[in-house]
Write a protein that binds this DNA or RNA. Structure first.
Ligand SMILES: [Mn+2]
Ligand SMILES: [Mn+2]
Ligand SMILES: [Mn+2]
Ligand SMILES: [Mn+2]
Lengths: 224, 224
DNA sequence: TCATAAATTTAGCCGCACCTAAATATTCAT
DNA sequence: ATGAATATTTAGGTGCGGCTAAATTTATGA
């Protein structure tokens, strides 16, 4: 259906997926920022992506881009590989959860369908990666995910952590130290009045951790 | 010492290593043939490689190329990764020995030093890959290898297989079917007078296999 | 509303790694 | 030893994916 796409194009499509997943379209500057390249380069590339056969994105000048179905299939395939790799590195090769994102960012482009299948099987067809992000299945269907975030909680309420943001290793080490990881039972102890900084208790470790509002919005959980 | 080198350059250096490993210099046309590209492209690239700082190859017009020390270090690092990957895929992910070369050809360029270390450790610091090729150690030193080939044997002589050629999956499936793999005890039953085709007995499986002279020269063994 | 600021696109450029065709150097066979 | 065959290099060109600077469009706010 779609011919072999470059490394770079795969990252563009994945990034467009991530941005449009929470909100309408992806803007030129959002993509430039996320990919670490100039806005002009992004414009150039999205014009190309909108003119492939079939088109991978829909694009109107100055209005940002969205993935077409074809583009979304590509993005989901790469995301699937990324998350399977992260899971495998943690489970089978003793990586810690803050090391795997960077590694997967490269390996995702070098993974054959055969390796994808073998790793998936070796892991027992997992539904979530080490950060709690859902892994699309063989047919690229995403498991359902919760939308409640830590920032939605009121003081005194409790929940079970579903996922944490995965990009910044320092954040992951900070969270990991106190035991705040997917599966952990937590309780929101207090929230400061002005800047909404939160004090969170992790039940299993009996540790407390301070979470700012930006980070808090990226931690999702099931309310208990 | 040497800045980050592209995939393509890594493959050039690896290929120059393979060619010069058995014989003097690598010619433009040998490289073009091995890499599946035009001779003109090869000339262009080796000129570039001879002008890096430090130079990766030594080159005189019309005389072919050799690796410098710097170039050899790069080649050995990629070969190490290639062979570790092959070993890992066979041992940990259930690959057969005819599937791994193609896979490793890609993954070798996507492997971080960290992943290299983890896989090396997980395998117990192996000295040979599934085809019997030596794996350079962390300091890029090659284990010693035998130079005797099946073609050197006289009819009636016996030996233990050390390595087989790894590039062609069909050859590997052919050899594997009869049990001719590294470690196997074999005996050269007969050699046809004109074209030197060999009939070889594999002791463990009690199977016979026919090996032509070109393939025979690429199978190395320890004489018993 | 309308001037300025911000975002986006266009224009023109670069290095990489490939290509074909033509020129030149080397090797081989008579 | 020399002309033909073969190998290699040069010349000129392509697509990819970046870049900066300039032009243009859209958004903002006084
Ligand atoms: Mn990537
Ligand atoms: Mn993740
Ligand atoms: Mn390769
Ligand atoms: Mn091998």
């Amino acid at each position: 259906m779609v011919k072999k796409l470059s490394h770079n194009i795969q990252d563009y499509l994945k990034q467009i997926y991530e941005i449009t997943n929470t909100g309408g379209k992806a803007s030129t500057s959002q993509l430039a920022e996320a990919l670490g390249i100039s806005a002009a380069s992004v414009t150039n590339m999205i014009q190309k992506l909108s003119m492939t056969q079939p088109p991978l994105v829909t694009y109107t000048k100055h209005q940002g881009v969205e993935l077409t179905n074809a583009g979304q299939q590509v993005a989901l395939k790469i995301i699937r590989r990324h998350r399977l790799i992260e899971h495998y590195l943690v489970k089978e090769l003793g990586y810690s959860w803050d090391e795997v994102h960077e590694e997967a960012e490269i390996l995702e482009h070098a993974m054959s369908p055969r390796l994808e299948k073998r790793i998936d099987a070796a892991l027992g067809y997992p539904e979530f990666d080490p950060h709690g992000d859902p892994i699309p299945d063989q047919n690229l269907r995403m498991p359902e995910v919760t939308k409640t975030s830590l920032s939605d909680l009121k003081a005194g309420e409790a929940g079970r952590v579903i996922r944490v943001p995965h990009n910044d290793p320092r954040v992951l080490r900070y969270l990991g130290k106190s035991g705040l990881r997917p599966g952990a039972s937590i309780k929101l102890l207090a929230r400061t009045p002005y800047d909404q900084t939160m004090r969170v208790l992790i039940r299993d470790t009996d540790e407390e951790v301070i979470i700012g509002p930006v980070l808090g919005a990226q931690i999702t959980l099931a309310v208990e």
